[in-house]
Design a protein around this nucleic acid. Structure first.
Lengths: 397, 397
DNA sequence: GTGAAAGCGCTAACAC
DNA sequence: GTGTTAGCGCTTTCAC
């Protein structure tokens, strides 16, 4: 208290009139100690407001069990839920949970993983889709190997293992199945012209959703030219921007074709989105008005939020004029206008599962791949397409 | 690599053919070392994939600068933003940020603060309103004193300091001013019967908002009987439940009084909300139908989300039949139906400010009290009350 | 410029 | 039962 710096075990020992070893034994509680001495020591510790030095403890072996979660950002509702799941499961087991954010920068990710190695984290959980290039594979292989060499484990949530032999556990949602199901929902409602908004070429999660979307289209007997994916990336702003451009380009007619698209000024502004058409992939032609569409499949709920706003701004109604679905079922998706039909990915469970599986049987876990199921939640943003537009009016505007 | 456990400085020294001290000097970079040896050491470290042991380093003095944020939960958009602000500001200064959640349990809060003391956090930031009772005051006084005794600092975000002499910095929003402003906005639109939904007696943040609400009412010449606060607490579910009960109790008539309230069944179900009426405080009478109201001031945006849904479920429209405002302006508030008029509390800035101020001048900061401003953001959930109901139709239904 | 040695606070053998 | 002692991996005087 009065002394400078932290109270140490030595001071407690002096006050209690015992040796440091005895104090340690009492505090750890792993060694039989007579009640009388025990009480004296505890009393002294409390009087001095003693707290153990976690670093000294860690140094000598009994370090705190710590799990680190690495996210792009905490303000994303989806990521926040995953983090909460990890936190909850870790706390339940008496582990400490550390959250790090990267803002999507691989450099910061690497830095953080390094940090966690220094801090002695036993479990490092990397969350979120990524573009899977050689740099990524190399980076992750290094993490896994480095972590494994000191007995720590790596788990990949929603991103692929670079190599099945790498000592990493992967836990993710079946994005393709979820996307196929929700696309099927749209198709069953009668929609034939559905655009996928929010592609991010190379990103494994989005690519899987696009694949599911394409598969559903094919299952319903539609040719590959029926697919339209707008690679605008994720986020509310991206969704809003891309949807606005799409509407401006005449992608969808207003009620009774009242929404006249500006013919000459299409492609105005800084349009960093590209329309990937299955018929001619690679030739991104943002200026070419896509065929009319009656429904939008947003890459995630935030994109859907932006799209919804853009549609409303254009004077169109959802779902009467155009149907919209999202992905993830974030907590506020039911408060959108209209309440959003989307696919529920149990994010918190993803986080819980990650730590549960990794901690269950460490040895067996390495290299394992767990797929979590998803399901559609139907709300009010889907309706059959307006009469006369079932086929989307495939003639250009 | 091949050896068991972590690579230590000793192995690097051996490989580089120098002493441990030299390796340390090169790695710390605080001591002049010839380029040649330097290179050899660096090379050896890289070859071995050496990472320093943060605990050993911390033990000897040069511990990593670490800030800990303690929140109720990360999935709350508001708290997530605060955390992001703290994280960002900390990262910018090379500090490590650790996020802990308590679920609102004081026990877990105490546990976590203890943990942070053990880990040697230099800055502990407690976020969010609390009920300010003696237990709270004692607890926080202890945190502050304990942290201060080892040179660490405590900052309180959105909660009061138990005592001006306690070595804690407090940074918060001016809740009363914000509430007064938004209530004034409602009053200016012509509303006279406004209910405050989401009181939480004892909670400092909510109490301040209620105070602001009352002050605005008084400023507009309304007597204290004009205030109606429903103490349902925060959260979407609470808002939904309380609003549903309010509507059922005949608090607001439908368009042309079409919404017939169930007269006999009012007060059904488990109603843990209590209506605090300024005229007779303390006598919570949930069964007594409050006077009709034309507007709702929700304690925060999540409560507003629940209220909005309840209103829609009752077949009423916002803002035509009833106006609603929220608090905090969470990222998705503009996607509500209708887009929500609310008061913007720059949450991320709160987090940033907390670390910035605490780190700026440590000595001067202790005991300081910083108030951050807020402002109204007007969207579409407010409109003058329906004709003929400007005074709320003070006769009971 | 570089090495040897003394701890940081704690736990875990080993004594007694 | 309890005290003594030897480190855990690192930084940092203090010599050379």
């Amino acid at each position: 208290m009065t002394s400078k710096g932290r109270v140490t075990i030595r001071e407690v020992a002096e006050r209690a009139g015992v040796s440091m070893a005895t104090v340690s034994r009492v505090l750890s509680g792993n060694h039989p100690v007579p009640a009388s001495t025990r009480a004296r020591v505890l009393r002294a510790a409390r009087d001095l407001d003693y707290v153990a030095n976690a670093h000294a403890r860690a140094l000598v072996g009994g370090g705190r069990k710590m799990v680190a979660v690495v996210l792009r950002q905490v303000t994303s509702p989806f990521y926040a839920q995953v983090a909460e799941g990890v936190e909850a499961e870790a706390a339940a087991r008496g582990w400490l949970c550390l959250v790090g954010t990267t803002g999507g920068d691989p450099g910061r990710e690497l830095e953080f993983v390094q940090l966690m190695r220094e801090e002695g984290a036993r479990l490092v959980i990397l969350v979120g889709g990524v573009v899977e290039d050689d740099a990524y594979r190399e980076r992750v292989a290094h993490y896994a190997q480095a972590l494994a060499s000191t007995g720590a484990r790596l788990v990949l949530c929603g991103r692929p293992a670079p190599d099945p032999d790498i000592p990493a556990l992967v836990v993710e949602f079946d994005n393709e199945a979820g996307a196929r199901a929700i696309t099927g929902h749209l198709l069953s409602a009668g929609h034939r012209r559905i655009v996928f908004l929010g592609g991010l070429p190379g990103n494994t999660a989005l690519d899987a959703r696009v694949a599911g979307y394409r598969a559903a289209l094919a299952e319903h007997g539609l040719g590959p030219e029926a697919a339209h994916v707008v690679d605008c990336g994720l986020g509310r702003a991206a969704g809003h921007r891309a949807m606005t451009e799409l509407l401006k380009a005449g992608g969808v007619p207003g009620p009774g074709d009242t929404a006249t698209p500006e013919t000459a000024t299409s492609g105005t502004g800084t349009l960093d989105t590209a329309t990937r058409d299955a018929a001619n992939p690679g030739t991104a032609t943002p200026d070419a008005a896509p065929a009319r569409f009656t429904a939008v499949f947003a890459g995630d709920d935030m994109v859907a939020a932006g799209a919804l706003r853009a549609i409303a701004d254009a004077g169109l109604r959802v779902p009467q004029d155009i149907s919209v679905v999202g992905y993830n079922d974030i907590p506020l998706a039911e408060d959108f206008n209209p309440p959003l039909t989307t696919v529920r990915t149990p994010a918190e469970e993803l986080g819980r599962a990650a730590v549960r599986i990794a901690l269950r049987d460490p040895e067996h876990a390495a290299g394992a791949h767990h797929l979590l199921g998803t399901h559609i939640v139907v709300r009010d943003s889907v309706q059959p397409p307006p009469p006369g537009r079932e086929d989307g009016g495939s003639t250009p505007v």
